[in-house]
Nucleic acid binder design. Structure first.
Lengths: 201, 201
DNA sequence: GCCCGGCAGTGACAGATGTCACCTCCCGGC
DNA sequence: GCCGGGAGGTGACATCTGTCACTGCCGGGC
């Protein structure tokens, strides 16, 4: 029996995936979580073979969970199932020792097959995602640039961003200008978009 | 038997919801579609009792489908299942005669119960969504303001937007300024965010 | 016939943003 | 002990944005 915990914030999707996997004779859904913290609790108490988790959830993300479980040397293999093919997400997943990375776009057979592969000790990362991640390179932004960009995305002015970060407006301007330069963007909006598309925000 | 067609672009979610609904003895999943056009074809050829559809899909959206089926006086009841609680979406759905509007956040029981209600001739719209839609009011933007805002969101400058829309940069500036005013936003970024959050883009 | 609203534009102005050069600190590596 | 890089900053400059006033054209409603 392959013992599985599923974490996913959208109740309908959580229930549906659980129903789908329950159809497989050798799968046992031993727990369900609606956010990252609940997922961690379940994994710690149940030590399932596999944690199947979304990335974007309230509280801790699936990637956060993977990182934490990696430092705890948990015996549970983490598999990510997400909507987003963002290179930065894949990179962080790999760094956190994630054993599978699937898109919600994929047909259902893929998920079932991937779970069996991971349960058998394997690794599943779609080659086209790996290629895109390779092409995108790694996150060029510094922490402060990321901070500034995140606030700029929300429509705050340099002055407001400065206030929030405890900086001078000039410094904020410099950070955003630098970030735009690194990302090949003409302005803060484009910079925010490309950073987000790459999973760097 | 309640005959159902499901439309959803994320293969995994599509398959999972189909698996979930197939567990109900009185439900028959007669068709699955990965985009709006395929959904329309299926509804026309199979005339199911219910079309269960996502909104954001490649090609025609679920709302587009609902509108088209409404003009065709199709006997199929349309139910929307979406991630987004945007007032504008709900408003358009109601205008298109949609019979059910559910969030993917909801627990699975809700979906099953809602399908039975709609199949029996009822209507399902969560009261908290209806309240939010009421509060948000209706879309204050004109078509041209929407066009300009959509391009502004992508980081284009006034000059670039003007070129794309065949306008003068000054006119674009006026549209964006007007839109920001109507939306109570301090700049184009905030304006874009609130318009999108309300489902007006 | 008049008024309103959407669409399109111009001109002027203040303030925000983007770019660049150049500065100081501090920390870690060699 | 020196160098580089990240963090934080300043000043100057050009350009872009946001705001306002005021123009004109068209079409629909009363």
């Amino acid at each position: 029996m392959i013992r599985i915990v599923i974490a996913e914030d959208q109740g309908l999707v959580l229930g549906a995936i659980a129903a789908l996997l329950a159809l497989e004779a050798d799968f046992a859904i031993v727990g369900r979580a609606g956010d990252g913290d609940a997922a961690l609790d379940l994994v710690r108490t149940l030590t399932p073979d596999i944690l199947l988790t979304d990335i974007e959830m309230p509280g801790r993300t699936g990637l956060d969970c993977a990182q934490i479980l990696a430092t705890e040397r948990a015996r549970t293999a983490v598999m990510i199932v997400t909507t987003f093919a963002r290179p930065g997400y894949l990179a962080r997943a790999r760094a956190a020792g994630v054993r599978g990375y699937l898109l919600k776009d994929a047909p259902v057979d893929t998920l079932v097959a991937a779970i069996r592969t991971v349960a058998a000790g394997g690794r599943v990362i779609p080659p086209e995602l790996a290629a895109a991640a390779w092409e995108a390179g790694s996150d060029p932004l510094t922490d402060r640039e990321r901070d500034a960009l995140r606030l700029a995305e929300e429509g705050l002015s340099n002055k407001d961003i400065a206030r929030r970060l405890g900086l001078s407006p000039g410094t904020v301007r410099n950070y955003l200008s630098e970030a735009a330069g690194k990302l090949g963007a003409a302005n803060r909006i484009e910079a925010g978009r490309t950073a987000r598309a790459n999973g760097w925000l």
